[in-house]
Amino acid sequence: MKKEWPVWEVFIRSRSGLDHRHAGSVHAADAKMALENARDVYTRRQEGVSIWVVPSASITASDPEEGGELFEPAKDKVYRHPTFYDLPDELTHM
């Protein structure tokens, strides 16, 4: 079987000041081409001002099976959220 162009994940900043967000993926032989392909495929309607491309193979993802141990422990740390604290209504700007 012949080799295929590798897959790259594409992240786009839609406006200045915003985070890059995952837009999709493209195939490309190298990073330069991946950027160009991402530009041609994902910004046809002015969707972006900046693009990142990352080889899909370089992404390490968390295992959904471990979702419990990874994410559930944060569930009861309510004190990390501002609404945990009971303050008088008269208090403003806090």
């Binding site: 295929e4 897959v7 493209v26």
Partner: peptide
């Protein structure tokens, strides 16, 4: 063509290549 590409990409996440 772009829509085909998005869909092939979605399909590839299931462990099959575009080729």
């Amino acid at each position: 063509g772009g829509h085909g590409l998005y869909l092939y990409s979605a399909c590839e996440t299931l462990g099959i290549s575009r080729d």
